[in-house]
Amino acid sequence: MTASQVELDQPGQGRLAHSPADHPPIPRAKVGVVLANLGTPDATDYWSMRRYLGEFLSDKRVVDYPSWKWQPLLQLIILSRRPFSSGAAYRGIWNTEKNESPLLTITREQTRKVAEGLEALYGDRVMVDFCMRYGNPSTDSVLRRMQAAGCEKILFFPLYPQYASPTTATANDQAFRTLMKLKWQPAIRTVPAYFEHPRYIDALANSVEETYASAEGRPEVLVASYHGVPKRFLMEGDPYHCQCQKTTRLLRERLRWEPEAIETAFQSQFGPEEWVGPQTVDHVAELAKRGKKHIAVISPAFSADCVETLEEINEEIKESFLEAGGERFTYVPCLNDRDDHVQALLAVIRNELAGWC
């Protein structure tokens, strides 16, 4: 049913045109916008971490080994040990005031600001919410809530600037799994990668310039550290590695820097197979051995600070650089809920809503 088929009865509700007078009110048709991020454990204790890691590491988009080979290893060994170390990492960055992970706090604030921006443009015709691929709020619960609220069209926005199978694709997969279970499916659009969007590049450049302006001395090299993927994914057609390289190049051009002032690396490798490189943790140590005393690291693939940035970069990778002879390490925060980042997201959303609003 379309909005033209509904006569307004009271704010946000109406009745079908030509329907009997006693027909129950129905929600007025709306467009939904869902911001989707990776996910978060509900708490840092062993069982909360095990549930979260079990869901994450059982995803075939993340680890695509045959189940008969991978699941015994995962269930009997990895999930017996890793919740302890991962829980400790999360405890080091946990938002104790709200009792939640920073990723959840930041994504909620991004959603609030995006909702305000869209309300200014479209009034109450657009409903905005967020979901997580792993953990809560789940993709299924959010999409069902939107449908119940009258969203007949939904724009699903994975918050990953660069497309990758283990991030963008699995987020979309989860949305489609919900649609497969619904009797009445809303129309749905998925947002493509925005790794080269001018406003996204501008926001990255602004964050670098602001961080450099407040740093104690100017860093000699900026390392753009992206989350890693197996090299096999690149060979099988995943465009992620190429899109990361282009983001780095566009950022350098926007900053008007020489090529040697910014380098690309990849973090978070696990497992025995070869991954795209160089690995950030090793690369920063090599920079120190080459005589670089002050470096900065930025994470263009992450839309919000999380355990991979606040703990891995600002602790493990920083430690690698300092132990190899480096002296000063500057972290450039993720774009988070910066106003220029929100404006970039709004520009992407407005383009994708064309014809719907």
Rank of each mutant, 00 (worst) to 15 (best):
M1V: 11
M1K: 04
S4L: 13
S4T: 08
Q5M: 14
E7H: 06
L8Q: 12
Q10P: 00
P11N: 08
G12M: 06
G12L: 07
G14E: 06
R15V: 12
L16T: 02
H18T: 08
D22P: 00
H23Q: 09
V31M: 03
V31Y: 04
V33E: 12
V34K: 02
A36R: 00
A36I: 10
Y52T: 02
L57Q: 04
D59T: 06
V63M: 08
D64R: 06
Y65G: 02
Y65V: 00
W68T: 05
K69A: 15
I77Q: 08
S80G: 15
S80C: 03
S85E: 05
R91G: 11
E97K: 13
P102T: 07
L104G: 02
I106M: 13
I106S: 03
I106N: 03
E109V: 03
Q110R: 10
Q110K: 10
Q110L: 13
Q110C: 12
E116C: 04
Y122D: 02
D129F: 01
D129I: 00
P137L: 06
V142Q: 11
R144Q: 15
R145I: 00
M146F: 07
E152I: 02
K153S: 06
L155A: 05
F156L: 02
F156N: 00
P161R: 12
Q162G: 03
Y163F: 15
S165A: 15
A169P: 00
D173I: 06
R177L: 14
T178N: 14
M180H: 11
L182P: 09
K183N: 14
W184D: 14
P186L: 05
A187N: 10
V191G: 13
A193T: 05
E196F: 08
H197G: 08
Y200T: 04
Y200F: 15
E210K: 15
T211S: 14
Y212I: 12
S214D: 07
V221D: 06
V221Q: 09
V223N: 12
S225L: 10
Y226I: 05
L234E: 13
E236N: 14
E236D: 13
D238K: 12
C242A: 12
Q243G: 05
Q243N: 11
Q245H: 14
K246P: 00
T248S: 14
T248W: 03
R252C: 12
R256E: 15
E260I: 05
A261S: 14
E263K: 15
F270K: 07
P272F: 10
E274R: 05
W275Y: 04
H283D: 01
H294G: 00
A296W: 01
A296I: 08
S299L: 03
S299V: 10
D305M: 10
T309P: 07
E311L: 12
E312G: 07
I313N: 15
E316F: 09
E319K: 12
F321P: 04
F321W: 11
L322M: 11
R328M: 10
R328G: 03
V332G: 03
P333A: 13
C334P: 00
L335I: 08
R338G: 04
D340C: 04
V342E: 06
L346M: 05
V348M: 12
E352H: 11
E352W: 00
G355P: 04
C357M: 01
